[in-house]
Amino acid sequence: MVRNRLSSLPSFGGVLATVLSAWASLALLPLRLPGMELAGIAPDWPLIWVVAWSVKRTAWQGLIAGVTLGILQDALVNPGGGWWPSHALGLGVAGALTALLQKDRLIQEDFISVALIVFAMAAISETLMALQWSVLGHRPLGQIWLDHQRLTLASAILSSLWAPLVYVPLSRLWPED
């Protein structure tokens, strides 16, 4: 596969729109609008963005995007000083796994399958968070895994419901090769 290197470089407008949409997914996190909340939990917008980004990309690209957004979400959430669980692990794994799914061979329907992937990835990333909490030992174990059930269910349901709304415009933004 030989490609002209200049034409393979993304356009400035495309890069800008990608960066802005990623920033928007972070800026939506502290917002709670009606319909965005289930038992006090909001959708995991960066996770939806990472899944939408990774569906038609390589595992490495998915990993890099997930780790980047995860680090930025840590900056918005984690208190300074000391070791706290990082969102980079969950989002990175979600990005890489989504890219490895080989979606075109397994699943046909476009945005319904994205909703399903988001549901599964929300469960995986929350589980990785719970594991980090367990290892770091800031909280009692029983409480962590009780919280995990509640958070995972609410986050997975809400995120997968909102996923098509994020995925459709983004998939127009990144046309297939």
Binding site: L29, P30, Q73, V77, P85, H87, M129
Partner: peptide, 10 residues
């Protein structure tokens, strides 16, 4: 108050 927690665990 301009925003709530940006992560589920906090």
């Amino acid at each position: 108050v301009v925003g709530r927690s940006a992560g589920h665990w906090w």
